[in-house]
Design a protein around this nucleic acid. Sequence first.
DNA 1: CGTGAAAATTTGCGGAT
DNA 2: ATCCGCAAATTTTCACG
Lengths: 159, 159
Amino acid sequence: MAPMDELDAAILRELQSDARKTNRDVAATVGVSPTTALDRTRGLRRRGVIRGAILDVDLALIGRPVQALIAIRVRPPSRRNIEGFRDWVAALPDTLGVYVTTGSEDFIVHVAVPDNTSLYAFVIDRLTERPEVADVRTSIVYEHIRNNRIAPCHSTGTE
Amino acid sequence: MAPMDELDAAILRELQSDARKTNRDVAATVGVSPTTALDRTRGLRRRGVIRGAILDVDLALIGRPVQALIAIRVRPPSRRNIEGFRDWVAALPDTLGVYVTTGSEDFIVHVAVPDNTSLYAFVIDRLTERPEVADVRTSIVYEHIRNNRIAPCHSTGTE
DNA sequence: CGTGAAAATTTGCGGAT
DNA sequence: ATCCGCAAATTTTCACG
């Protein structure tokens, strides 16, 4: 149903370097006409491969220079507690992202706040509002590097 | 130097909901002319507040449905080791992102791979190539939610 | 910060390989 | 079946008030 050929992959590569690149530019660099490039890009969007474009904002410049990863254990780890906490924490303005995980913790929450005082307040005021939160471990993030060259994998094993 | 007023914040809000939204649409929803919206958006870009637009790709649909967070400790944690490992791991095709952190680990690496076999291979083949890697702890990611409504904070000395 | 015109881009349709 | 050329509609862009 989704035959990702080399042309699709090339378009994906181009748009990942800059999601706002014009269709004309994409077409030129991958070597097809703008019409073909547009058809393919719309196909990728329709099939859900491309979900959208996210704005990359400098967090320090908007007054939130302090980032942290907060590992959280909820008890008991019932569906009700997991989904309830997930939706609650994902909606907080401090939260950049939420990972729901296995392992010794149930959540890793990525936050950005103005300073260490705000971070401390987030942990001891906001998180403790939730009775299901059993354990919290905070790590300051010095640097967050994102890879914007995500390549498709030809599913190995059983294709 | 960077007086983020309410108009800048509104434009940032609009573009975060969809970084490919046309300037005309942004202007209409924030209630200014397209020219003003363009001037502001370019100003935000020039000042570095907007760093670019990232394509949101469905990882499962490109053959990489298995995500993990891998906590890594390097010994000794010298600048040479930290920066060397950081650059090496950030460039691997499996890597989505790298967090350099304090706490009991030095790195949290976010990866996406085709299956559990590939994940295991990544951990025991690739990571162990590096002699500075002293400890590894892997957590499977069931779900990753991103908050695409990141609001500016008016620098709070004491707000 | 807005108006208006010019340039660039996107987009749908018909045709070619 | 996929890709391309053309022309209309939309959007970006800039000089000016």
